[in-house]
Design a protein around this nucleic acid. Sequence first.
RNA 1: GCUCCAAUAGCUCAGCUGGAUAGAGCAACGGAUUUCUAAUCCGUAGGUCUCAGGUUCGAAUCCUGAUUGGAGUACCA
Length: 582
Amino acid sequence: MTANIYKEKIAQLLCAHTGVAESDISKVITTPPSGVGGDFSVPCFTFARVMKKSPKIIAESLAGDINLPEDFDEAVAVNGYLNFFVNKKGYTQSVLLPIHQKKEQYGVSATGEGKTIVIDFSSPNMGKELAFHHLRGTMLGNSLSRIYKSCGYRVVRINHLGDWGTSYGKLITMYIKEGLGEDDTSFQSLTIEKLNQLYQAFAHAAEAQPELEDEARETFRTLEAGDERYRKLWQVFRDITLQELKRLYAILGVEFDEYKGEAFFVDQAPSLIKEMQERGLCTTSRGSQVVELDTEDMPPFMLQKSDGSTLYATRDLCAALYRKKTFNFAKNLYIVDMGQALHFRQLVSVLEKMDIEWAQDCEHIAFGLILTKGKDGKWERGKTRAGGVSLLKDVIESASQKILEIINEKNPELVEKENIARQVAVGALVFSSLKTKRRNDVNFEWDKVLSFDGDTGPYVVNAHVRLSSILRKHQETKAVDTLAMLEEADPDFSNLEEEQARELIGALALFPEKVLSVLEKNEPCILSQYAISVAEKAHGFIHSCRVLGSKEELERLYLVNCARIVLKNTLTLLGVPPVERM
RNA sequence: GCUCCAAUAGCUCAGCUGGAUAGAGCAACGGAUUUCUAAUCCGUAGGUCUCAGGUUCGAAUCCUGAUUGGAGUACCA
């Protein structure tokens, strides 16, 4: 938080001269646009009202009156702005020294000390393979988990598996109809692909025989009532799903603390419904139990179907109560697509009706849908059944192949090519799913998904690779431990005054505040955009300032190492593998 | 119908707790390589920030209303 020291000094200084509160001043301090010059800028418009003078005059008189504190070179008035120029050497040192000292710890803070954040993310449905559209929510949750953790929060990552509901009535019905066998050997040969097919087979069959839908609902009701045969099948399906999920999560570098899905909460539903009835919060409507929300202009929240079985709404309500009781969270975040916005608004309203004071701590972190091109050429939500979705494993495979081709062309000597290609490919996919504001819908196109030109994951990772490569080369040619050497070094920071060096240093200084602003908005794209800007400036620096063999070699190596550290920290928080060679 | 979300360069997007000349990438055009990784860098061109009002010294940013697109709208999840 090096930049803040300068802001504080400016605020203190101007407070003494204008009488405006320090906090109000530091709030408006910005960076001048490129071309204007200066490092910090204070718009004097806010002073105009209290001082009853024009901003222009205020800025000019301040520029003349103030005694610059240490570490400042100059203050210039421009069009009602007061622009400060800091002492370059001092600024460079104040930015680089903390990075050099803290390393992996640079940018972490203790703002979340003692608080617990529950993050519900990924949460796919049982019996289905992860599709491309699951990537966004999964990586959003993964990145937010890492960022909260780095800020001192205790994070509980929950995969709220969709493992209960009428769909599993369908799956079981179809499994039995196809006579697939219910002994261990049949189960052992069962795959996730087969389960996927059963869904599609059911949907297909139900078009011709709509009564199958009722049959599936009845199967589910029986399952929920505790039928042992159905329960066994359910368990087998769940195990197969989980095995496949964990395989993919490992590739993505994602971990969970819990896989408590919906089924876990079914037992808690009856007593909750009873309580709601006793408190008069729940009414009977067309044979079902609902919480009326018409005062809030929302449809009712259904707790129990007319056949007595529960819905996902019921189980979500139980889960929220359970999470509060178990983890005493400060926030309970649901990383779920925007399509479920109404559901979560309802959930919070129901909690409020129950007079629960933490209702507002349950927050839906919504993200946009992955749209696919429909038959009529319009972009719409992908339907598994219509074949409108691509499997995540296929996308990863294609991306890895594409990256491998590029490696073969650019760097054929690289060892462990396949492994690195996959890491870079995963990084590219992860980065692109976190690159834009989370609410944006995304049109799925193979060409775009497999395009790695420009501002993409590989661009940022490549910057990290090039920086690492310079340090490695130094170590090899000089036969010294470069990092240990830097540890002992006493660099002269006035040797880093080229424009490209200063731009890079300026970017590195921003890392801690960027991390904090991600938490304010739950928006990792702030970090991915930041990663691009650091990579850009790192590429620019090493392109125009030769490091090895230069007379500023020591200082340049020092800066390269700092940039490498910041890039690595950024990539790690995003969930992009920071490889060192590619 | 109602509710929520979005709209910025030809395309994909940053910028939104109001501040100086609205920024990137892709696509187009021109240049840089005896490489510390050119998976790079530099330059040219490209804009009525959907429209109309309002608030303000100042609006892409805040408010109101339209238009267009997307999503959702009780026995699915």
